[in-house]
C-alpha cells in the first residue's frame, strides 16, 4: 500500500511538470497569433504608420525624461508593436530594403527597452534614435521635428523631439536641460 501511494505521488509530480512545459509552449503559440492579428488590424496608410511610430517614440522619450522606467518599458513595447505594423510596400525597392533594415534594428532596441532597467533603456535609446531619424529621412513627417544633442552622454548622443525646448532623455532630472537643438527637420 505504501509503495502504491508513493508511486502515485511521483506520477503526479511528473504529470505536473509535463503540463507546465506544454502550457509554456501554448503560451508562446498564442503570442504569435496575437501579433499577426495586430498587424492585420492596423490597416491605415503608410504615412499614418510612420507617424504612429514617431508618436510612440516621443512617448518613450518623455518617459525617459521623467526617469520613469516602468512607463518607458510600456512605451518601448508599444513602439515595438508599431514598428512591426509598419508597411513599406509603397516605397521604392531600395527604400524598402533600407526601411526593413531600420525597422528590424529599431524593433530590437524597442524590445530591449521594454524589459530593461533605466541605464540599459537609455543605452538602447541612443541607437534607436539614430534608427528613427534615418526612418524619418525616408518616410518624411507632417510635423516639425528637432534633432537635439547632448555632448555628455556616451561621447555625444542625439535624439528627436517635437518641441524645440531641450528636455534630456539620457539624464532626466539629473541634467534636464542639458543639450542643444542641432537641426530642425521640416
Amino acid at each position: 500500500m505504501k509503495n502504491f501511494k508513493m508511486s502515485i505521488a511521483a506520477m503526479l509530480l511528473l504529470a505536473v511538470s509535463f503540463t507546465n512545459a506544454q502550457e509554456k509552449e501554448k503560451m508562446n503559440h498564442d503570442h504569435g497569433t496575437m501579433k499577426m492579428d495586430h498587424s492585420k488590424m492596423m490597416n491605415m496608410n503608410n504615412d499614418a504608420k510612420a507617424e504612429a511610430i514617431l508618436n510612440d517614440y516621443f512617448n518613450l522619450k518623455d518617459a525617459l525624461v521623467g526617469d520613469d522606467t516602468k512607463k518607458a518599458a510600456q512605451e518601448g513595447a508599444k513602439l515595438a508593436a508599431s514598428l512591426k505594423a509598419f508597411d513599406a510596400s509603397s516605397y521604392t525597392a531600395e527604400e524598402q530594403k533600407e526601411l526593413a533594415d531600420i525597422i528590424e534594428d529599431a524593433t530590437e532596441h524597442a524590445e530591449h527597452i521594454a524589459k530593461s532597467e533605466m541605464s540599459h533603456q537609455r543605452e538602447h535609446f541612443k541607437t534607436l534614435s539614430k534608427d528613427i531619424s534615418d526612418m524619418v529621412a525616408i518616410t518624411g513627417t507632417e510635423s516639425t521635428l528637432y534633432e537635439q544633442f547632448c555632448p555628455m552622454y556616451d561621447g555625444g548622443s542625439s535624439w528627436l523631439s517635437s518641441s524645440d525646448q531641450v528636455r534630456n532623455p539620457y539624464y532626466g532630472s539629473k541634467m534636464l536641460k542639458c543639450g542643444k537643438v542641432k537641426e530642425t527637420i521640416n
Binding site: K2, K5, M6, S7, A9, A10, L13, L14, S17, A21
Partner: peptide
C-alpha cells in the same frame, strides 16, 4: 522518507525529458 523517495523518482523521471 516518502518525500525523499518522491523527489528521487521525480529527479530520475526528468532525466528522460529530451
Amino acid at each position: 522518507k516518502i518525500i525523499a523517495v518522491v523527489l528521487l523518482v521525480a529527479f530520475v523521471g526528468i532525466q528522460f525529458v529530451p
